[in-house]
Amino acid sequence: MRPISIYTRFLLVIFANALIFLTLPTPLVLAINIYFCSFQVIVGRVRKGQAWLLVCLVFALGASLAMVFPENLPGHYLLFLFVGVGRVLPLVLVAAFMMGTTKVSELVYLMRKIHAPQWLVIPVSVLFRFFPTVRHDYAQIRRAMKFRGIAVTTGDMVRHPMRTMEYIYVPLLNNATNVASDLTSAALTRGIGDPGPKTSIQRIVFTRLDALMCALGLVLMGCGAYVAMFQA
């Protein structure tokens, strides 16, 4: 298991967002997606990496069969799934990696380094802190719903998605409101309003592995840009 620098992560986010605007051939997309999955493995989440790799392969297979999909509703649906949803797959891969493995303290350090304003730094750091809370809240709410006889099984959930959504998001939002007001109190009494310069105990490392992965990323990005231009 090896850490990945926040700078490398920053590059990944830019890369994944840029990809949205490019239409690339399937093999190159697959190569880029595999590159993203490899980060999960590097930080030691081998299982997660494998699972995402499988998803990428399925999408690559689906996309390469796009020409043979029939000209009817299920055919269009498949086309939308593999090409449309496949387009945002790189973003999903990077998001899954970032949210699961980024330390909030590093993120805050980076944002302060690039002189992001305080009104941006604080909400973003609180947002990252919220994700694990939401996961826990969701599990609790699902349990509460079962006792009320609402969407007891996953099947019920799929059958009445709108109704289910409402029952999940009402308590979720109510809780988020309470947590937000508690957090505000805690933050204010821990000096968050101090207008003076901030410091950080965070040490940012940038290893040889980071350099290698960044270089690889830049090469893939270059290939993508070249192919996109060549096609145009």
Partner: peptide, 15 residues
């Protein structure tokens, strides 16, 4: 404050 779940900001103890 009362609720230990809602008074921390970062995700690891040291920070």
């Amino acid at each position: 404050f009362q609720n230990p779940k809602t008074q921390f900001f970062t995700t690891d103890v040291r920070s």
